[in-house]
Amino acid sequence: MILESAVLPVKPTLQPGFEEAFRQASAIISSMQGYIRHELHRCMENGNQYLLLVWWETLEDHTVGFRQSEQYQEWRKLLHHFYEPFPVVEHYSEVSLGTG
């Protein structure tokens, strides 16, 4: 399992529209092969910034299965015009701490 993280810098004053568009976009991502779950968090110090966390079964489920799909084009149309600058997306794998 991998964790995708993206800090989403939303243009000032567009937060309400972004949140509504993200509600619509959530149905897209949650229908994808390999999707496990996702969360969206608004930054308390900067209300224009959000943190998106998405859990995928594999890296390729996100980078190939989602990003190269027709559904991703719909996702882009709904969300990408809200960002400035464009978000950096990173992927993480869990570190086993051997604690049980």
Rank of each mutant, 00 (worst) to 15 (best):
A27P: 02
A27I: 06
I28T: 05
I28K: 01
I29Q: 05
I29S: 02
S30E: 13
S30R: 12
S31D: 04
M32P: 01
M32V: 02
M32C: 01
M32W: 01
Q33R: 13
Q33F: 06
Q33P: 08
Q33K: 10
Q33N: 11
G34A: 06
G34C: 07
G34R: 04
G34P: 00
G34N: 09
Y35Q: 11
Y35A: 07
Y35I: 14
Y35M: 04
I36C: 03
R37K: 09
H38C: 04
E39T: 00
L40K: 05
H41L: 10
H41S: 11
H41Q: 13
H41A: 13
H41D: 15
H41I: 15
R42M: 01
R42P: 00
R42W: 07
R42H: 04
C43F: 07
M44R: 12
M44I: 09
M44A: 13
M44C: 12
M44Q: 15
E45N: 13
E45A: 13
E45W: 05
N46Y: 07
N46D: 15
N46M: 03
G47Q: 11
G47A: 13
G47D: 11
N48H: 12
N48F: 03
Q49K: 14
Y50D: 07
Y50R: 00
L51D: 02
L51Q: 01
L51S: 00
L51E: 02
L51H: 03
L51W: 02
L52P: 10
L52D: 01
L52Y: 02
V54M: 03
V54W: 00
W55D: 05
W56N: 01
E57K: 15
T58L: 03
L59A: 12
L59F: 09
E60A: 14
E60H: 05
D61W: 05
D61K: 05
D61C: 13
H62K: 06
H62I: 01
T63A: 15
T63L: 11
V64K: 14
V64S: 06
G65R: 09
F66R: 08
F66D: 03
R67L: 15
Q68I: 04
Q68G: 10
Q68R: 15
S69P: 04
S69G: 06
S69V: 02
E70G: 09
E70M: 11
Q71M: 11
Q71G: 12
Y72A: 04
Q73A: 08
Q73V: 02
E74A: 11
E74I: 15
W75P: 06
W75V: 15
